[in-house]
Amino acid sequence: MKYLLLLFAVSIAALSFSSFSEKKVVSFQQKSTPMTRGKVIYTQYCLPCHQADGGGVLHLNPPLIKTSYVLGSKVTLVEILTKGLNKGVEIDGDSYTNPMPAQNLTDQQVADVLTFVRNSFGNKASAVSAAEVKAIRAKLK
C-alpha cells in the first residue's frame, strides 16, 4: 500500500511537472515577440493612465495616438520613459497636466513597450531595439 501511494504521488508530481513545463513553453512562445512583451508592460505600467485604447484622458494624461511624441524622436521617448516628464504637454490645442513618473525598466523592456506603443492604437513607426535604448540612456546619464 505504501509503495502504491508513493508511486501515485510520484506520477502525479511527474504529470503536473510535465503539464507545468508545457504551459511554460507555450506562454514563453506567446510572449516572445517585442509586441506581445510590450503589451504586457504597457498593461502593467502605462494603461492605468494612458488607457486601454491609448487615448489618454482629456486634460490629464496625453493620448498616445499618432502624436508627434509617439511617432517622433526615439531619444525623446526614451528620455520621457526613463526620466519622467513634469511639464504641461499640448496636443491639438488641449493641455495635459499629470506628471509622467520615471519608469524603472530594463533596456529590453523600454524597447518592447515603445515598439508596442509605436505600432498600436493606429500608430505605425519603426521598432525600437534594446541596443538603441542602451545607447540613448548612456547619453542621457
Binding site: 488607457q51 486601454a52 485604447d53 487615448g55 489618454g56 484622458v57 482629456l58
Partner: peptide
Amino acid sequence: SQVSSSRD
C-alpha cells in the same frame, strides 16, 4: 454599456 477607456 461599459466604459473601459474614458474616451469610450
